[in-house]
Amino acid sequence: MEVSELKIFLTVARKGSISRAAEELHCVQSNVTTRIKQLEERLGTLLFHRKSKGVSLTHSGHLLLDYAERIIALAKEAEEAITNPDEPKGRLSIGTMETTAAVRLPPLLVNYHRLYPQVELNLVTGPSETSLKRLLDFQVDGAFVAGEIAHADLIAEKAFEEELVLVTPPDLTSLEQINPSKILVFRAGCSYRAQLEGWLRRTGRLPYQIMEFGSIEGIMGCVAAGMGVTFLPRSVVERPQYQDNCSFHRLPKDVAEMVTWLVRRRGETPGKALQALMDLIG
């Protein structure tokens, strides 16, 4: 098997479609189809079920998926070790929460870019759960996430400590007044959302409706308009643009304390670009 074949196989598996894989790989669809057929013939088994719309992995395909991810990661690690013996270079993809990308990462990344200008850094934002899945699927090299990290294939190191606060419309002045009919949150998989929902259940503030947003600005704007409440880190909501539009309420310590972790895959030696980022945080 060739690494190039495995990269095509992985792309088709992730996209669930020959045509979408061809678009991502910047090649014609017939080439992708041919390479997949050649790989199947060499292995003597079907790797994909062909459907009217897209493809799905067979049992053999699922078996190959894990090996392919590890082989490609090792090939990348070997290439970097040989071709970049000293200075970090190449592409580094990092998953991150929207809040971390907005507040914690800008000064860190400015320093990183100044020190390592030959690294092409790519940030992929999303809820913690999504970032962890991307990490396990080898779509990113590391991820900034919050909450408990209990997966045996991952290693987590503390990056930042956050204090969560309850953010409400400006006319609410105490926790005792809070009986929300709506909570304004990021989509499922967000650690802050999980913390908020757990707190509401424990304190008997039920029922409530959920409104999902894709940005901090959307959440804060709707809180200011009186549409609901949310949990966000104090480092986010204390920025000047939010000070006069919302109220911020201190939470009990066991609810407020939240660690942001930098997570990577266990069993892999961090590439030089990732190690440089870890060193700046440490």
Rank of each mutant, 00 (worst) to 15 (best):
A102D: 10
V167P: 04
I36Q: 05
I71Q: 09
L277M: 13
R264Y: 10
E212R: 06
A13M: 00
E238Q: 12
P270R: 11
R202K: 10
S93Y: 00
E77N: 09
L43D: 11
V236A: 09
P88C: 10
S17T: 06
A143Y: 00
A102Q: 07
S17Y: 02
Q38A: 15
T125K: 13
T269V: 15
V103N: 02
S30F: 03
K253F: 05
R239Y: 00
R187K: 13
V55I: 08
C246I: 13
A75L: 05
H113I: 04
P88Q: 07
D137L: 03
K53W: 07
H249W: 09
P180F: 08
K76N: 15
S30C: 00
A22V: 07
E217N: 12
L280C: 09
L10P: 02
K133D: 14
T100Q: 05
T100L: 06
H59Q: 14
E69N: 07
T33Q: 13
I155Q: 05
R202C: 02
L132H: 00
I149A: 02
K158L: 13
L232V: 10
A225N: 07
L63A: 12
E5S: 12
K89V: 09
C222T: 12
S30W: 00
S131H: 01
M211V: 15
K272F: 11
I18K: 00
V110H: 14
R134M: 14
Q118H: 14
I18C: 00
A22F: 04
S17A: 01
L154I: 06
A156P: 09
D141F: 01
M220S: 06
T230N: 08
R114M: 13
L121D: 12
R50E: 11
E41Q: 14
S235I: 01
L175G: 08
Q177D: 11
E212K: 03
T173K: 08
D137E: 13
L277S: 04
H151T: 01
E77A: 15
H151R: 08
D244H: 11
A150I: 10
R201F: 07
K89T: 11
L135R: 01
E23W: 07
G228Y: 03
R50V: 08
D137R: 07
V167K: 04
L196D: 01
P270V: 11
R205M: 13
R91N: 13
K272Y: 11
Y242M: 08
A194I: 01
R205T: 03
D254L: 09
G95C: 05
G267H: 06
H59Y: 11
T173E: 10
K182A: 15
D171E: 15
A13H: 01
M220A: 14
S17G: 02
P207V: 08
A81Q: 12
C246Q: 04
Q195P: 01
K272V: 12
R114T: 10
E2T: 12
V237F: 02
A194W: 00
A73Y: 02
N111G: 10
